[in-house]
Structures are given as structure tokens and as C-alpha cells.
Amino acid sequence: MLDALYHIDRHRHLFTGRELVALHYAEVVTTSARDVSEELWDELQEYFDDGEIVEITTVVGLFNFFNRFADALKINPPPT
């Protein structure tokens, strides 16, 4: 599934419409949150209620924060 996420254009068939909309939203929020369009908002509302959209946005925002925090402080993940 990680490979499918990395190459999502070739593996769209592996994801539900709900998952694809959430992934697209996460990408837009991560790269340029002000670019969440009315069309994308309408697509989200087809699959998610307002509370779920808030939850998705919170998770995306938190993970963006964690990544930026760790990058700024040059914190590497622990070895496995």
C-alpha cells in the first residue's frame, strides 16, 4: 500500500472514492492549505460529515507540525 500511495496515479483502483478524496485533501492542506477549493470541499462533504472533516484536518495539521518540528531541530527517527 505504501508503494501504491507513492504511485497513486497508477494505483487509484486500490483506493475507495472516500480514501482518494481524503488523500487529495491531505495533499492540498499540506502543500498549500489556502488552495482548498469549493469543489474539493464539496467532494469531502459527499463522504464525510463536518466532524470527520475537522478530524482529518487536525490529523494532517498535527503530522505536518511533527515533521516540521523534527526537521527544524534535525531530529532523526530512532533506528529500527
Rank of each mutant, 00 (worst) to 15 (best):
59 V>Y: 04
27 E>C: 02
57 T>L: 04
17 G>K: 05
11 H>G: 05
55 E>Y: 03
49 D>C: 10
36 V>M: 12
21 V>L: 07
49 D>Y: 10
14 L>E: 14
3 D>R: 12
21 V>N: 00
29 V>R: 04
71 D>L: 04
66 F>C: 12
71 D>E: 13
75 I>C: 01
32 S>M: 05
80 T>Q: 12
79 P>Y: 07
66 F>Q: 05
32 S>T: 05
75 I>S: 06
74 K>G: 12
9 D>L: 12
52 E>P: 00
80 T>M: 07
79 P>H: 08
10 R>K: 15
1 M>C: 09
11 H>R: 09
80 T>K: 13
37 S>G: 12
53 I>L: 06
51 G>M: 05
78 P>H: 11
59 V>K: 02
75 I>L: 13
60 V>F: 01
22 A>I: 07
14 L>I: 03
74 K>Q: 15
49 D>T: 09
9 D>G: 08
77 P>K: 10
53 I>E: 05
24 H>Q: 11
38 E>N: 07
47 Y>G: 01
46 E>D: 08
40 L>M: 09
31 T>F: 04
51 G>N: 13
64 N>T: 03
69 F>G: 06
78 P>G: 07
25 Y>E: 00
16 T>H: 09
60 V>Y: 02
29 V>C: 00
58 T>G: 02
10 R>G: 06
52 E>T: 07
16 T>V: 06
21 V>E: 02
8 I>C: 08
7 H>M: 01
70 A>I: 05
34 R>P: 00
77 P>I: 03
23 L>P: 04
36 V>A: 02
36 V>H: 03
13 H>M: 06
22 A>L: 11
24 H>P: 01
5 L>G: 03
60 V>E: 01
63 F>T: 09
76 N>T: 14
18 R>I: 01
1 M>R: 10
7 H>V: 06
52 E>S: 05
74 K>F: 08
18 R>A: 03
